[in-house]
């Protein structure tokens, strides 16, 4: 067993520096690497390019990094829930590249899987495809989209072990499995780090080979963005 376990979030984030490109898992606030984000905020690294489906809210998730002006550029599909984001975007302090959600996922997966680029129909004929190579296959048009290049991927899983194996829960899975192994170094944080051998090899979502460092997060707030409930009749 190759041991990926590190003892602290600061050990897990060793090597981060200004102007790096990070991938961060999560959809909205679900499945975000809360502990890594807290460490990035504390570290003060700046000039970051962050590849993440969303940009958090004002006081949580990537909103915390935005608040400290540590992010230079966001690469996302939807960024609507954050006033500070809007302010920085409109003032020109923050560069934003909006890309279709499926393309975002597949550009991560391409990096993970060793494809330099992929052809997707998403965005053909729209401003997203401007300046990009297009090609016809079987009578339909596709846009060439390149694999992402990132220095670190910060992913969050439900359970994991020292071998780096990961198991996700519910829709907190989202972009995390696509980003694991898609950057030079993948840092996984888990709610529960279990002894090696406890996870059923049949049930592992991401094998440890895609993970370089793993740690158990100190605490998880797991904030709900839109609490919607029904009443019992």
């Amino acid at each position: 067993m190759i041991n990926k376990k590190v003892n602290s979030v600061s050990e897990a984030t060793k090597g981060i520096s200004d102007n790096m490109t990070f991938m961060l898992g999560g959809f909205g606030l679900s499945g975000i690497p809360e502990n890594a984000i807290a460490a990035l905020v504390k570290s003060g690294v700046k000039g970051l390019t962050c590849i993440s489906n969303n940009a958090g809210v004002d006081d949580f998730g990537l909103g915390l990094l935005l608040h400290q002006k540590q992010i230079k550029k966001m690469v996302s599909s939807y960024v609507g829930e954050n006033d500070e984001f809007e302010r920085q975007m409109l003032s020109g302090e923050l560069d934003v590249e909006l890309i279709p959600q499926g393309t975002l996922a597949e550009r991560c997966r391409a990096a993970q899987a060793g494809f330099p680029a992929i052809f997707t129909p998403a965005g053909y004929g729209t401003e997203v495809a401007e300046g990009k190579e297009t090609r016809e296959f079987d009578g339909k048009m596709y846009v060439l989209e390149h694999a992402f290049k990132a220095d670190f991927a910060f992913v969050k899983a439900w359970k994991g072990d020292a071998a780096g194996n990961l198991v996700f829960k519910g829709t907190a899975r989202n972009f995390n499995p696509c980003m694991a192994g898609a950057a030079k170094i993948t840092v996984a944080e888990v709610e529960e780090l279990v002894p090696v051998g406890e996870l059923d090899p049949n049930q592992i979502h991401i094998p440890g080979i895609f993970v370089q460092r793993i740690f158990q997060g100190e605490k998880y707030e797991k904030r709900i963005e839109q609490r919607t409930v029904r009443t019992r009749e």
């Binding site: 606030l29 679900s30 959600q101 519910g170 829709t171 709900i224 963005e225 609490r227 409930v229």
Partner: peptide, 28 residues
């Protein structure tokens, strides 16, 4: 729901909502 679920049901009962189970509108 494109955030990663097939077989979505109704909203949860009050007190049974789970931050790890949401739809693409980020609703529980």
């Amino acid at each position: 729901s494109e955030n990663g679920v097939l077989g979505m049901g109704p909203f949860p009962f009050d007190g049974e909502e789970d931050a790890d189970i949401i739809n693409a509108g980020k609703q529980t």
